[in-house]
Design a protein around this nucleic acid. Structure first.
Lengths: 229, 229
DNA sequence: AGGCTAGTGACAGCCACTGACAATTGACAA
DNA sequence: TTGTCAATTGTCAGTGGCTGTCACTAGCCT
């Protein structure tokens, strides 16, 4: 709050002069991040239901009302990072070359986006907190419910993307939606297993995903050999 | 509330003397049904969010507290019939002969259970109200979220069932969960399309389901022909 | 008939969330 | 530097879902 704040900030920040959000904007960003971190920290330590919005606000020393100005609700804060991750995934799908077969494109998009997502999150909160948050979501009915609904919305979006890639009409041809539903189904299964397991590393989820996607074919086979494979 | 209620009920009811729940029990049942009907009626006419629990209770002339003794919450009432339907579906799967391939068994189970479910529901509320309720769920975010979470739980249950049928271990072999996830994904897509469409008949959902299930293979093909089919 | 207990109503209270209004503070121009 | 405008925030009051408690009524059982 000194008189040289302006200069100090400009120098101290790693902003390459291209974008200088202004004091007000930066302050807002800091408040949002602080609220998010406090919320996730409290959620993952005491549990989601046992944490009140007042506690979160108090931890950041703002009014409860302010919390609701940054987040639509408790859920919104808890799922914030998921949304971040989802947008990265969608972007990854968009960038897949259109000569790849639909499922192939989706597969590469997830596997690839695991990394870029990590970086984006680290810029806001420690990755480790995000991992804990993910497990929290999987184990908290209220959060899982909202997360699954969001997943469905994303599936619709991706289905339209795929349809566009292939030059098809989603409302006429069932294949885009089906392909995405299949893919989404597998992702949900692997996500759940990953969250329930011990190894929370990116490698673990990557491998699990790849393995399960490889098993879609066999799982749909007329007759299953008893060989588990 | 006359003194001959007991006798009248015994005669009037279609209970074949095998089970006579007792006055208390019957009264409870009537209260529950009344609450359910009132709730669904209000939900589907005014909207879920715009209906308060007090309104529902008042419509049946009981205290708000009593509503919560019968239903865990507003959601619980709204999804009551879904749960009924789900249990029928699970039962149908259990009864499929074990020589059928997994997906074939699931397919037959749904298509078959559409009918038996109808009867079970009619015993509580008019089918037509159930149809409206289904559309309400699909179009109400809060309800859809919980419904999807329940779906996931059911998928897990079915996956274990399938694994058992095939003599496999769900935690070792990915195929049961994958197959069920694929199936569930298709069901969700068709359910959504059905709810959004005009034709709310059983035939419509049956045909839609069959068609979409038939397209799973093509949707997973390496290269999609441009023919929508 | 009379005790036992399930079911209920009435009341109090917690917490998520919202609208309204006033106070504060950054942004920008004079 | 100072004044004005607009964005942010705090405060207050209220709505609605949901829960705990307690006294009371009415089926049920011996």
């Amino acid at each position: 709050m000194t008189d040289t704040v302006g200069t100090a900030e400009t120098v101290g920040a790693a902003q390459p002069a291209a974008s200088r959000p202004g004091l007000r904007e930066r302050k807002k960003q800091r408040t949002r991040d602080a609220l998010l971190r406090a919320a996730l920290e409290l959620f993952t330590t005491q549990g989601y239901e046992r944490t009140t919005v007042d506690e979160i606000a108090e931890a950041v020393d703002v009014s409860q009302r302010t919390f609701f100005r940054y987040f639509a609700g408790k859920e919104d804060a808890a799922l914030f990072l998921q949304r971040l991750a989802e947008s990265h995934f969608i972007a990854a799908v968009r960038e897949r070359p259109s000569h790849e077969a639909p499922l192939e494109a989706l597969r590469r998009a997830v596997l690839e986006s695991w990394d870029t997502i990590g970086e984006a999150i680290e810029a806001v909160v420690p990755i480790e907190l995000h991992m804990r948050t993910y497990q929290l979501i999987e184990s908290t009915p209220a959060l899982l419910a909202v997360h699954l609904r969001r997943s469905e919305e994303i599936e619709e979006e991706i289905a339209r993307l795929i349809a566009e890639r292939e030059g098809l009409d989603v409302d006429t041809d069932p294949r885009p939606r089906i392909a995405v539903a299949v893919f989404g189904g597998v992702m949900r299964v692997t996500g759940r297993l990953w969250g329930a397991g011990e190894d929370t590393s990116v490698e673990a989820i990557r491998e699990l995903t790849a393995t399960y996607l490889d098993h879609v074919g066999p799982a749909l086979a007329e007759k299953w050999g008893t060989a588990p494979r």
